[in-house]
């Protein structure tokens, strides 16, 4: 059989994709890389080397925001993994009808934007007269500054973010659990395995790929988060909840930072994402630990 028989029609089908990717991804990416290494002035182009990168890495506000978003992302992703996994296990066991209804309903928050979610949660967390503080006062407690407190501010970002992703995580985990062949559990039951043993020796190892998929996609999303922090805390208190993208947006509107610096900072965010995600693949995907392989 001849190879490459479909050349003409395949290229016709791919023209829109290729043109759009080059125009709106590859050209901007090349421009971004170029701008972070070269400086264009009316007199000509000058090679700057790593000068802009060094400037960005030594920018304490930006670096602090990177640590902030890493802490937030890790907390969010781990919590989401654990609670969704437990919930998905419950969904497999409960009454069929309840399971179907629950799986449908929990997906809804996933469709709502971060801005809308934050506006809804503000109703609960407002300092003067928010629902939580009103209820606290009714039982004699003192109000909490959810948007300006070292302990509560991170939480008022973490909880709405988990709220958005919980349903999607649970659905993916549910799909993972029901795709495990039933015979594995039956065999384990014959050998007298307990509930926890089945979970740690069958369910979790069999779902490794689902965990990796969820973590890798969420790292990309969470490291760029800014909508919920922008509305809930706006970086307060003392910039401890300022995420990198929010920092860049703020600095750009204040005129504190040049477009070149923003681009360089954003390239650093990309590098961090690539490093984290490749480490995850390297650590978990190729590991041939006997105990974890079925």
């Amino acid at each position: 059989m001849r190879k490459n028989v479909d050349n003409k029609s395949a290229y016709l089908m791919l023209i829109p994709t290729i043109v759009l990717l080059i125009t709106f991804v590859y050209i901007p990416l090349s421009m971004a890389l170029f701008r972070s290494f070269f400086e264009s002035t009316p007199e000509g182009t000058q090679f700057l080397g790593f000068q802009t990168f060094i400037q960005t890495i030594t920018n304490e506000y930006f670096m602090k925001s990177i640590w902030t978003v890493l802490k937030l992302s890790i907390t969010i992703t781990l919590t989401q993994l654990v609670i969704s996994f437990l919930f998905a296990n419950a969904l497999v066991k409960v009454n069929k009808k309840l399971s179907v209804i629950s799986r449908t309903l929990i997906y809804l928050p996933n469709l709502i934007s971060g801005i809308v979610v934050a506006v809804i949660f503000t109703l609960l967390t407002t300092f003067n007269g928010g629902i939580i503080n009103s209820l606290l006062e009714s039982i004699g407690g003192s109000p909490i500054a959810f948007n300006n407190d070292y302990f509560w501010s991170p939480l008022s970002i973490i909880i709405p973010t988990i709220w958005i992703g919980f349903g999607y995580f649970s659905l993916v985990m549910y799909a993972g659990i029901i795709n495990i062949p039933k015979t594995y559990f039956e065999a384990a039951e014959v050998d007298g395995a307990s509930f926890l043993q089945k979970m740690f020796y069958i369910t979790i190892p069999m779902m490794k790929n689902y965990f990796i998929l969820l973590v890798v996609t969420m790292i990309v999303v969470n490291l760029q988060m800014f909508e919920i922090p922008m509305i809930m805390t706006n970086g307060q208190p003392a910039n401890t909840t300022l995420t990198p993208v929010l920092y860049l947006i703020h600095s750009r509107s204040n005129g504190n930072i040049s477009d070149t610096e923003i681009t360089t900072a954003a390239i650093l965010i990309m590098i961090i994402i690539i490093i984290i995600n490749s480490s995850i693949f390297y650590l978990f995907k190729n590991k041939k630990g006997r105990k974890w392989e079925m």
Binding site: T17, I18, L21, T23, F24, V25, Y26, I27, P28, L29, M31, A32, R35, V220, L223, Q224, P244, V245, L248, D259, I262, T263, A266, I267, I269, M270, I273, I274, N277
Partner: peptide, 20 residues
């Protein structure tokens, strides 16, 4: 070429996309 774009976060090309 298609798959590689998955690794490029939106924020990285945001400013230069505005230029484009």
């Amino acid at each position: 070429m298609v798959l590689f774009t998955m690794f490029i976060p939106g924020i990285t090309i945001l400013i230069t996309s505005v230029k484009v």
